[in-house]
Design a protein around this nucleic acid. Structure first.
Lengths: 234, 234
DNA sequence: CAGCAAAGGATTGTTAACAATCTGTGTCAA
DNA sequence: TTGACACAGATTGTTAACAATCCTTTGCTG
């Protein structure tokens, strides 16, 4: 149950989607901070594709708010504003509690196994102190909940929201909390296991509120990216 | 407060978005039924653009599930399956009741005016028997609710969901009910006016359930499109 | 008449080339 | 030293041309 590639397998857009997925992941891991320039030539070289496919991938990313296209100047990783942040969290609060509650009602053994496995991976990443992995898994938990719900539309929507959230946290995070708090995912999983929809919903809501509370819009900061190595095959 | 063009005004994608919007509207009005072939040359001629822009617009539409791209065969208006329908309605049921409740809590005079104006337009269209207009306005009511919520992300998401719903209804609608029932939007507006969030939420949910109930997956049908004239400037 | 194969035309996928625009650097004058 | 201007190089936007693929039409055979 991979959530890294969530496109129609019959699609003719193999290369474009591969590029999109990889950039999504790099953004989610906070390896591609806001305002990073994504030049066509870098993408062509990094992915071994022609300009057409690079441009199409950038177009897709732009339509999903991950990248901003500037006429005649190129593509940049999106740089969210405070109002973007409000919008994203609000959308998430409409969707995630309701969705998490539904997952709690309907979870099957397979879904539960996937969620449990994921939480174990989060724990392992925390023990080993692998920051990028912690961040990536932290965001992916939310997308995974949507994925195990079986609703592809919502999974895609959540991926976009979570990835945008990652940019927001990169811009406005207080530094300490660059991802979700330690045990909140585990509590959500527990509620799902217990088929406690009400609790799952409340926990999901509180969890989002905590993430939002950790933001500080009085300052922004962004680390330096090493673009070429990040986009190379991993 | 136009919902026909909901793109970033600073974007460099003017023509592409114009094409996307127009095709969105044609689909929402059920003027472009499922499986309609959208050839590049037709789009180039209809919109007066080059192949690059036509292809980019089709790519955007495909990423939003409105169009299916078939390698070496071209682009077709999406042809939803029953499981697509389930997915779309489920997503809507997660989003719309919650969103409508929020609108009821927060509605301002401007939003109320826009919604009221819209309902009046729906009534007028019904009186005059203008089927395409009825269908378009019927779908747009839902997008408008999201729009007056002020959340651009949700407005875009709803537009996609509502447009997909239009395709679903075109494929699986029982013929009689090609759009929403007559007074349900008005009841939703009333609840919003009264700031009755609970009622607004319930009505929104029931409304979606009614639309879904009117679908009949044992049969499909699609009318003939006159493609060129539909895509011309309106 | 039906079925099959081949040919021709239409359409899509891609690239190279060119035009347009922007950015960075160097020079000169105040 | 600073600001303005010109120029070169880099990058993006677009088109024409060509290759690849598919669909339709035509012709032939049984």
């Amino acid at each position: 149950m991979s959530i890294q590639q969530i496109h129609d397998p019959d699609s003719s857009l193999g290369d474009e989607h591969k590029i999109v997925d990889r950039i999504y992941n790099a953004v989610m891991q906070q390896n591609l901070p806001p305002m990073t320039k994504l030049s066509e030539s870098t993408i062509c070289e990094s992915f071994g594709v022609g300009r057409m496919k690079a441009r199409r991938a950038l177009l897709l990313l732009a339509s999903q708010g991950i990248v901003e296209l500037r006429s005649n100047r190129g593509a940049f990783v999106a740089s969210p504003t405070k109002s973007d942040a409000d919008e994203v969290f609000e959308a998430r609060i409409h969707i995630e509690p309701s969705l998490t509650a539904q997952v709690a009602k309907r979870i099957d053994a397979r879904g539960l196994k996937a969620l449990t496995k994921h939480i174990n991976k989060e724990k392992a990443a925390r023990r080993s102190g692998d920051r990028q992995e912690i961040i990536r898994l932290s965001g992916e938990f939310h997308v995974l909940v949507a994925t195990v719900s079986g609703n592809g539309f919502l999974a895609r929507t959540l991926r976009e929201l979570v990835t945008r959230t990652s940019l927001i946290v990169a811009m406005f995070g207080s530094g300490k909390a660059s991802c979700c708090r330690d045990d909140e995912h585990e509590q959500i999983l527990e509620a799902i296991k217990n088929r406690d929809a009400g609790r799952a919903s409340d926990l999901a809501r509180e969890h989002l509120e905590h993430i939002q509370l950790d933001l500080d819009f009085s300052q922004t900061h962004q680390p330096e990216p090493d673009l070429v190595s990040l986009l190379k095959a991993r």
